[in-house]
Design a protein around this nucleic acid. Structure first.
Length: 850
RNA sequence: GCGAGAGUGGCGGAAAUGGCAGACGCACUGGACUUAGGAUCCAGCGGGUAACACCGUAGGGGUUCAACUCCCCUCUCUCGCACCA
């Protein structure tokens, strides 16, 4: 064979071989032929179509749908391979499994393609979808393609507009002018969640602040619930819940009303009322309405105004940098501490944020590092009110704030108390005196959803000079995204340049009016697509409640951890809104979440910019889909990063060849044999194989249940190795051959969810029912899982010295007898005093001696 | 700085509940079969030793008959948040 032709994989390399038993030329493993064959069959028979029929328990398995960027990448292959194992496995366990796929089809790259290559975003998107659908089918994933949904379809976004209007009616959508995050490169606004370390989540460009009128979803109305329910999601990774909790940032505290000398009120938020007696100055955010007003008429006026101006021109990411020097300016005015009547100066400071709390703080330099730094710089006094046990704090010599707990001092009648315990007491006191109130503050901000882009769902609102903001009537939905326009740059949304779109009449006064030309954030679409899947063909309304109730919640969601606070938080919010609107029965959409790791190569995440991508197409062409899937599943556990290895792929291909030969080599002799799964005779080899088979079934079942897919595969490999060893011993006889067939069938069934094509083909060759896999997962018997004879470890003083092979469940006395008769044991305990002997049944014996 | 997670052979990774560290795979070494082998099969494979001994799960201490696993301290890496009052 001309194998040196450079392709690397020497076709299948065994055309000239023949079966050792039959002498008949064996069928070569041709992954592409069998993969096409089975995929065609699954498609024709609609093998993966599901309905809402009763009888079986439902199981909704969902993987995060892809953005149709052009081609799938290895991350998708991994994500969807993991999902496919679970979907097929659950079906084999008798569940009615919903396993859908669709497209997160609105978004910026489509517009970029339009600008760069002159192709229309819609065309580009649908072409990509067509190609990627083909790729997914080539990988053999068990999706019910009849439920496929693309979010850029009118039938989809129409109902999103409908939901927007419902939310508007309920006050969950509002419009406001505010400083927003803006990415110059993407030419659009970003929500807080979409800014990563001051940069755009998509393109990495530094985000600037811009004043714009925007539509907001009132996610903060659900802040508390979203926070509290984090503790009611045991099926989610701790890490993700932590990130969500951090993001929502719930903190308990108190608002205290300070008064200026002239009686002007100034309310601050603090979580540390126990330090109220240590307040030596106050600080306002530069954007605080009082800031520019307070200094009027004082000698400080000029300085204050120029400081505010200076801060305004600073970029926000610079200002929020922790290393940025704390700066401020005195307003020339004083406030009165409501607890002790102290007169304290009011400053304006760059480190106080208008967005959090009340935009004003009380400063306690003794016990807050930021306040301390500010006080040092401006020579402000420090008053200690919390004293640690072991030392006395001296304000003159302190080099940093004391932020830990201790005993209260300088705090009038609170002196001597532990500060933590005093907090609620002080708050009670404040409330009784009418000086303030308990509050809870959140870091979470409302979700700004306006995007100054074309390729998104139009916001269904009309602006009329006479009537103001008028929602589009339900009967006028959908507000179609016009396709007859050319997408060029730059500056504003193409819709704002398209009169045919924005010119309209006011629904209430019939006068001339203008449509909203912003579109919705694409994260809105992904916030409810999982509900659409449940009733994809439903046309009479947004969702078919009955079917949604049947399938929801999603039993298992699988996707990348990068959406821990974006998509996953938005979806939890949106699902709650839809629940309140009566469209969904459940509160939380995703019961269990699995976050899979990244695909790494040469020490970096696979990405075009790093130039270390492996193209799934290439992989499938060279090895076939089953090898691609197997490697992704075997190389590391799902939640960890996967280190790509070309040699590892070879190994996976080799294993499939080995399984193929196991069957194809002896298919003739195996065909006439009936499978045997239990053996109770005396032959050691047969007993061994029976044991191995049952042990493997148990192990694989348990491992798949807890997503340890790599070890599940490893144990199937062990079974295959055991079968080869068994064959080598030339087992003859009806039992021996039946058991061989039983073990082989077990391999094919256990391996099916991982590599469905290869195993289906081999099953068919053996005359098994290859296509119907419902309820086919094998059971094991515990009695066979146990081994007859067990190797017991023998330790002297905790060190392994020998092992011995004994009958299972041997009694302790006999075991000890065996152990003490071992040569090595005798040698080691010679002349020593035996203190005790520890016996762990069927495991180990430890002899403790002097 | 705060929070979370991780550190095991040459490499990817195994070891629910403390009980033979290194399963499985890759790489490597030797052998078999071969015109050939980058196919396949067999054997070996943490360090160390002639063989033992001995040393090994980031480092140091501790609990225990027994620690990758539990407790304390230190170091390193990854991720998230980062002036949130």
């Amino acid at each position: 064979m001309p194998c040196g032709s450079g392709s690397g994989l020497c076709s299948t390399g065994n055309e000239s071989q023949s079966s050792p038993r039959s002498g008949v030329a064996m069928k070569p493993y041709e992954p592409h032929v069998i993969e096409e064959k089975w995929q065609a069959l699954w498609e024709k028979n609609k093998t993966f179509k599901v309905g809402e029929a009763g009888g079986k328990k439902k199981y909704y398995l969902l993987e995060m749908f892809p953005y149709p960027s052009g081609k799938i990448h290895m991350g998708h292959v991994r994500n969807y391979s993991i999902g496919d194992v679970i979907a097929r496995y659950k079906r084999m366990r008798g569940y009615n499994v919903l396993h859908p796929m669709g497209w997160d089809a609105f978004g910026m790259p489509a517009e970029n393609a339009a600008i760069e290559r002159g192709i229309h975003p819609a065309l580009w998107t649908y072409e990509n979808i067509a190609y990627m659908r083909k790729q997914l089918k080539r990988l053999g994933f068990s999706y019910d393609w009849d439920r496929e949904t693309a979010t850029c379809d009118v039938e989809y976004y129409k109902w999103e507009q409908w939901m927007f209007l419902k939310m508007y009616e309920r006050g969950l959508v509002y419009r406001k002018n505010s400083p927003v995050n803006y990415c110059v490169k993407c030419q659009t606004v970003l929500a807080n969640e979409q800014v990563e370390g001051g940069a755009c989540w998509r393109c990495g460009e530094a985000v600037i602040q811009k004043e714009l009128t925007q539509w907001f979803f009132a996610i903060t109305q659900y802040a508390d619930e979203l926070y509290e329910y984090c503790d009611k999601l045991p099926g989610w990774p701790e890490k993700v819940l932590h990130m969500q909790k951090n993001w929502i940032g719930k903190s308990h505290g108190v608002e205290v009303d300070f008064k200026l000398e002239d009686g002007t009120g100034m309310t601050i938020f603090t979580t540390r009322p126990d330090t109220l007696y240590g307040v030596t100055f106050m600080v306002l955010a530069p954007e605080h309405p009082l800031s520019s007003r307070l200094a009027k008429g004082t000698p400080q006026e000029k300085a204050v105004l120029s400081f505010i101006e200076k801060v305004k021109t600073q970029d926000r990411s610079f200002r929020s940098e922790i290393s940025t020097e704390k700066e401020g300016v005195f307003t020339g005015r004083y406030a009165i501490n409501p607890l002790n009547g102290n007169k304290i100066p009011v400053y304006i400071g760059n480190f106080v944020l208008m967005e959090y709390g009340t935009g004003a703080i009380m400063a306690v330099p003794a016990h807050d590092q930021r306040d301390f730094e500010f006080a040092q710089r401006y020579g402000l006094p420090v008053i200690v009110t919390i004293s640690p046990e072991e030392k006395t704090l001296d304000p003159e010599t302190m080099t940093e704030a004391y932020v830990d707990d201790g005993m209260m001092v300088n705090s009038e009648h609170f002196n001597g108390r532990n500060n933590r315990e005093a907090i609620p007491v002080i708050i009670d006191y404040i409330e009784q005196k009418g000086l303030g109130r308990r509050t809870v503050n959140y870091r979470l901000k409302d979700w700004g959803i306006s995007r100054q882009r074309y390729w998104g769902a139009p916001i269904p609102v009309i602006y009329c000079d006479r009537c103001g903001v008028v929602p589009v009537p339900y009967s006028d939905l959908p507000v179609r995204l016009p396709l007859d326009l050319e997408v060029t740059m730059i500056g504003r949304s193409p819709l704002a340049e398209h009169p045919e779109f924005y010119r309209t009449t006011c629904p209430s006064c019939r006068g001339e009016a203008r449509r909203e030309t912003d579109t919705m954030d694409t994260f809105v679409e992904s916030s409810w697509y999982f509900l659409k899947y449940a009733c994809a063909d439903y046309r009479e309304g947004p969702l078919d409640r009955q079917r949604v109730d049947y399938w929801m919640p999603v039993d298992q969601y699988i996707g990348g951890v990068e959406h821990a606070v974006l998509h996953l938080l938005y979806s939890r919010f949106f699902n709650r809104v839809l629940n309140d609107l009566g469209l969904v029965g459940v509160r939380e959409p995703f019961e269990n979440l699995l976050t899979q790791g990244m695909v790494i190569k040469d020490g970096a995440k696979m990405s075009k910019s790093k130039g270390n991508v492996v193209d799934p197409d290439y992989l499938i062409e060279k090895y076939g889909a089953d090898t691609a899937r197997l490697f992704c599943l075997f190389a590391s556990p799902p939640e960890k990063d996967l280190d790509w290895s070309d040699q590892g792929v070879e190994g996976s291909a080799r294993f499939l060849q080995r399984v193929w030969r196991l069957v194809a080599d002896r298919v003739v002799s195996l065909r006439g044999i009936k499978a045997v799964y239990e053996y109770q005779g005396e032959d050691g080899g047969l007993r061994q194989l029976t044991h191995r088979m049952h042990k493997t079934i148990k192990k694989v079942t348990e491992d798949v249940e807890r997503f340890h897919l790599n070890t599940a595969i490893a144990s199937i490999m062990e079974l295959v190795n055991a079968i080869y060893r068994y064959i080598e011993k030339e087992q003859e006889g009806r039992d021996a051959q039946g058991l061989l067939r039983g073990a082989i069938e077990t391999v094919l069934v256990l391996l099916f969810p991982f590599v469905p094509h290869t195993t289906s083909e081999l099953q068919e060759m053996l005359g098994m029912k290859a296509e119907l896999f419902d309820n086919l997962w094998p059971a094991y018997k515990e009695s066979y899982v146990q081994e007859d004879r067990i190797t017991v470890a023998v330790q002297i003083n905790g060190k392994l010295r020998d092992t011995c092979l004994v009958e299972r469940d041997i009694d302790e006395a006999t075991l000890k007898e065996v152990v003490f008769s071992l040569e090595k044991v005798k040698r080691h305990i010679e002349g020593r005093e035996i203190r005790k002997t520890i016996v762990v049944p069927n495991k180990l014996v430890n002899v403790v001696c002097s």
